[in-house]
Design a protein around this nucleic acid. Structure first.
Length: 783
DNA sequence: CTACAAACTTAGCACTACCCGG
DNA sequence: CCGGGTAGTGCTAAGTTTGTAG
């Protein structure tokens, strides 16, 4: 099963039908027919290619201004011509099929001479020059003033952390010292039912309790970042947990709910009935209108049927799930309409499950588990045009589950009457349980919550690697600029790919097995059909237009001016290729990452995203500096948004978006009318005053009218700002970058410097996740 | 090596809990 | 007090990278 991605005969990108969301629904129009898509069979109509250029380019504003990185400065002398850069080995340079990579010749050199903004990092890198394998990052700790520490197990006593000033942080993070009145607002989290009637004492007591709780929590917190790290691959020394929580068994339909086939009631077997219900529950969803989904569902459903059922039920369109669907809807309604007590009962029951299964003991500390529940069965919901959508995701039994825990810990009990597939004691991995999922055959894991040490440490390390990149990024950019002129095709392709990854923050782009997943690409897997070159476009030279579906079938659309050298290389790469051919036919992510790690230990393609995201945040925050307090947050959000745009983090506009936007507009309209009214009243009043000289009453009236006008204007202004803000955010998701790409220390330091309470930026779970950063970050932190 | 599998991060969507203005 | 609207959270799919077998 070659997982090659190969010549993709299919051409997806279609014309203007794009929804604003631009989630391209690949039009299935015949395109995919060819399974014979060896790169060799490239006879695709290249017209598609053409089509693309006509595409309306409304979309995403994506300013994405090409960052003015140093790289731009080179300009070429590209003498190129194909002839020159033939690969020695296979003489011709015509794009060969997914080139088997060849020896990537050595390169690293790079004198120590280069130096960058941050030369203090230099040493770091010099030492790394010795390409020692250890990609592990040693200890970020000393690197920036954070705690060098090494107190081995001294968890509880935060008291003596070597780093000065540390204790301060405690109350700082606890609650916002700055705003006093705001307080209750922020922490709705733990706000108990405050019947405003309560006496002052009670309120005060409640507050005190809250504070105490917080302090306690802080006290409990495992300050793992102050501890020494374990030796190489060891992730933990002790691990004990209760195993995963299983979803409830299937409850058969009540007797009064029927499934009909061809108009007749059919009593289904339990297994078939369960699957039928999965489908019935999705009837309101767009999925069930898709051919692929329906077919896949039907195929898998029939597998669950008894022989007779299978004989009888041969046509999905003759199935009537109406009553099942109605029952489901009713249940949902009922749940919504439940009274407070019942809801509370349910809530408590859930809480008990969390208490029992939601935590584990890891090296003497109680840690939250992320997903302690086994995924319930259902129909597979792949994103985009997923070829497997609708397949049955089977119910997982204990017999499918592997448990991982500490030697000498209490091994979790399997549910009564069951056994685990296996129990192992592997402390070089971080998962507590795993199973193989049947639709794609991949592993699923139960792992810890982001606030845990295991996740936090990794996260911290990630940002430290990105910071190391900062210190040698200039050198690396220089390097790939040079490589653009390389004699070897591979190197040129690698250089261009790297340029994209660096400048546009594209993902690496692994190859994918065809037919197994939706047709999406990243940098290395770009195909000719995904870009269009313009010698001149909209006032810029050498513009590349990108249009492809990336992760999660999110469309990436961007027009970017590139350097001449890159442009010429692209032309070269595209020569004699069909739209469905790989743009970088000699390159893959393995090759690319291998090269990167030789440039800097630990460097991989995705580090560029982290680095560019974080550095962008930092830069934008600086550039947006001051402003009144209310606007600080706005600035932060803008900076955050800039990153989200860079990383192409999109979201579907909320379903209610248009509606609520309209509401807002009409509100504005109302205000406008009020404003005109108020204005005319004002002029009227003024006239009166003129008539009767100075009547104090009239003067007061005028004043009042003035105020009214002013108020209206202010409110209109405010709403309009809100409207544009919302509009701008319509398709942009800020959360992903905040959670995964932005070094929290940048934000925390900013908060401290700006005197903005951290709560304004991070909610509770985010503060927990970034506890390490909250604790160690000083105002002078620089990424 | 290459191909595949395992392990772990990153991703958007659905739902729900809660807030706020009318 | 109600309902619209949104932030928070859970869920799990979809990526990347590393590890390993052949």
């Amino acid at each position: 099963m070659g997982r090659r991605k190969d010549g993709k005969a299919k051409t997806k990108l279609q014309g203007q039908a794009l929804t604003p969301r631009q989630r391209m629904v690949g039009d299935e129009k015949e395109g995919s027919s060819g399974d014979a898509r060896k790169k060799s069979t490239k006879r695709k109509e290249r017209t598609k290619h053409k089509e693309k250029s006509e595409r309306a380019e409304k979309d995403v504003k994506k300013a994405k201004a090409v960052k003015s990185k140093s790289v731009e400065s080179f300009d070429d002398d590209v003498r190129v011509h194909s002839a020159v850069l033939d690969e020695p080995e296979d003489g011709n340079f015509v794009p060969n099929k997914r080139g088997k990579k060849r020896k990537r010749q050595e390169e690293p050199i790079e004198g120590p001479s280069t130096f960058k903004m941050n030369n203090l990092k230099e040493e770091d890198e010099a030492s790394s020059g010795a390409k020692e394998k250890s990609r592990k990052m040693k200890k970020p700790k000393e690197e920036e003033g954070a705690c060098p520490v090494t107190t081995k197990k001294s968890k509880e006593e935060k008291g003596e952390c070597p780093v000065t000033t540390k204790k301060k942080s405690k109350e700082e993070k606890g609650e916002c010292p700055v705003t006093t009145k705001k307080k209750s607002k922020e922490e709705k989290g733990e706000c108990p039912v405050t019947t405003k009637k309560k006496s002052k004492e009670e309120i005060a007591a409640g507050k005190a309790l809250k504070i105490k709780k917080k302090e306690e929590e802080e006290q409990q917190r495992w300050r793992w970042w102050e501890e020494a790290k374990y030796e190489d691959g060891v992730k933990w020394k002790f691990l004990e947990h209760k195993g995963p929580h299983f979803p409830p068994e299937y409850q058969p339909l009540p007797d009064n709910v029927h499934f009909y086939y061809n108009g007749n009631i059919v009593k289904l077997s339990l297994a078939a009935e369960e699957v039928a219900l999965f489908y019935a529950q999705m009837l309101d969803h767009e999925y069930t209108t898709k051919e692929v989904f329906r077919n896949n569902f039907f195929k898998d459903w029939r597998k669950e049927m008894t022989l007779e059922e299978r004989m009888l039920i041969t046509d999905l369109s003759k199935c009537d799930f109406g009553e099942l669907h109605a029952m489901h809807v009713e249940k949902v309604e009922a749940r919504k309409a439940m009274n407070k007590e019942d809801k509370l009962v349910i809530k408590e029951a859930n809480q008990r499950i969390v208490d029992e299964y939601g935590f584990c003991m890891l090296d003497n500390h109680r840690e939250r588990i992320g997903n302690f529940k086994i995924e319930p069965p259902g129909l597979f919901r792949g994103r985009g045009e997923h070829p497997k959508q609708g397949y049955l995701k089977k119910r997982i039994q204990p017999e499918d589950v592997i448990i991982n825990c500490g030697k000498g810990s209490r091994v979790p009990e399997p549910p009564a009457g069951h056994r685990w597939k296996e129990v192992r004691y592997d402390n070089t991995v971080t998962w507590l349980a795993s199973w193989t999922e049947n639709v794609q055959g991949s592993c699923k894991y139960i792992m810890l919550n982001p606030s845990s040490k295991l996740k936090g440490e990794k996260d911290w390390e990630k940002y430290e690697v990105a910071r190391r990149l900062k210190s040698c990024v200039d050198r690396i950019r220089l390097q790939y600029q040079q490589d653009l002129k390389s004699k070897q095709m591979v190197n040129r392709q690698r250089a261009v790919a790297l340029y994209f990854i660096d400048v546009l923050a594209l993902r690496a782009g692994n190859e994918k097995e065809e037919g197994e997943t939706a047709d999406t690409v990243g940098c290395c897997s770009l195909r000719v059909e995904h870009i269009t070159l313009y010698d001149r476009l909209e006032g810029s030279d050498c513009v590349v237009e990108f249009d492809f579906l990336g992760k999660d079938c999110i469309r990436y659309y961007n027009k970017v001016p590139v350097t001449k050298r890159v442009f010429k290389n692209l032309k070269l790469f595209m020569e004699n290729k069909e739209p469905g051919d790989d743009l970088f036919d000699r390159l893959n992510t393995g090759l690319l990452n291998k090269h990167l790690s030789s440039l800097m230990p630990g460097l991989t393609a995705k580090v560029f995203r982290t680095y560019n995201a974080s550095i962008t945040l930092q830069d934008v925050l600086v550039s947006l500096l001051p402003g009144p307090s209310a606007e600080k947050l706005l600035s932060y959000n803008r900076a955050n948004r800039a990153v989200a745009v860079l990383c192409n983090h999109q979201r579907a506009p909320p379903k209610t978006f248009d509606q609520s936007m309209a509401n807002l507009q009409s509100k504005i309209e109302v205000r406008r009318e009020q404003l005109t009214l108020a204005k005319s009243e004002l002029t009227l009043a003024k006239k009166e005053v003129k008539g009767h000289c100075s009547d104090s009453k009239l003067l007061a009236l005028v004043e009042r009218k003035k105020k009214a006008v002013q108020r209206c204007e202010e409110q209109i202004m405010k709403m309009e700002v809100q409207a544009t803000d919302r509009e701008e955010n319509k398709q942009i998701a800020l959360g992903t970058s905040k959670l995964n790409y932005l070094d929290p220390r940048i934000s925390i330091a900013w908060c401290k410097n700006m005197e903005v309470p951290l709560e304004k930026i991070y909610n509770k779970s985010q503060r927990d996740k970034f506890a390490w950063a909250v604790d160690m970050t000083q105002t002078d932190f620089i990424f």
